[in-house]
Simulated scan of single mutants.
Amino acid sequence: MAAMRIAVTGSAGLIGTALLRSLDEEGGHETVRLVRRPPRGAGEIRWDPGRGYVDAAGLAGCDVVVHLAGAGVGDRRWTQSYKREIRDSRVLGTAALAEAIASLDTPPRVLVSGSAIGWYGDTGERAVDEDAPPGEGFMADLVRDWEAAAAPAAAAGVRTVFARTGLVVASGGGAWGRLFPLFKLGLGGRLGNGRQFWSFIALHDHIAALRHIVDTESLSGPVNLTAPEPATNREVTAAMGRVLHRPAVLAVPAPVLRLALGEFAADVLGSQRVLPERLTGSGFSFAFPTVESAIRAAL
């Protein structure tokens, strides 16, 4: 990757932190973070996604913008107010950023905008790639509007890529970050009937894929960031048990999940068998293609 000036939103999150660490370790790049508080130096840009404000002048000279900000989908029970927060944090933030990018005399050459495989809804056992139409439900509706909010950047000639992310396998955060402690205590087990597909990606591969997207001019539009071998929840449970040397015989019945998680339980119990056709077709190679290798990498 040639030396670039790269702006990142969501820089304090799991993926943003790992991306910045990767860029810093390589050296030669200038990175700037979009922050909601007053900037503390030249490496920070002020923005307020809820109010639709971005310091566009701070983006001047950026070659790349990587947009990763948004309220955590699985962080809290899906009340109506939290669903609104999830939606606003993504749609309003993306719109503000895209409009700021479009206002520049010389906009960045690429916007990589975080997205989600929630676009596809529940696919059951059917495998889908980026050509599949949107599914149904809150997440599918959200992703449709979230991606549409980036239209001003694309209209300004910026190559715009939607990184449709699956479940990131990492010990430090995200859904898997909450699974590891349970399994280490011997409390892990399948969810519901265990037959639902989980489309995952190792954190290492996720960061490598983001960097591949930045460097690959032929990629635009949706790109699935999922490993090439989706696993069922039952297979995930078995792999966790093997890697952590803990029994994984417990099961959480679907009604209990619905009681604990509310509407979000539909996503936990739903099946998404999503394939990364555009990534692999553009020459990307996964270091951790199986769920067991991804779990071992996280540890």
Rank of each mutant, 00 (worst) to 15 (best):
P107L: 09
P108G: 08
R109K: 13
V110N: 04
V110A: 08
L111V: 10
V112A: 04
G114W: 04
G114T: 08
A116L: 07
I117H: 00
G118M: 01
D122C: 08
T123I: 08
G124P: 07
G124K: 10
E125D: 15
E125G: 12
E125N: 14
A127H: 06
A132S: 11
P133Q: 09
P133C: 09
P134S: 12
E136A: 11
E136Q: 14
G137S: 07
F138W: 06
F138H: 05
M139F: 01
D141Q: 10
D141G: 08
D141H: 02
L142A: 07
R144L: 06
R144K: 14
D145W: 00
E147H: 05
E147K: 00
E147N: 08
A148S: 15
A148G: 14
A148D: 15
A149Y: 03
A150V: 09
A150R: 01
A151W: 03
A151I: 06
A151H: 03
P152I: 00
A153M: 10
A153G: 12
A155T: 05
A156C: 11
A156N: 08
V158Q: 09
V158W: 02
R159K: 15
T160Y: 06
V161Y: 05
A163C: 15
R164C: 10
R164T: 11
V168C: 11
V168E: 02
V168I: 14
V168F: 08
V168Y: 06
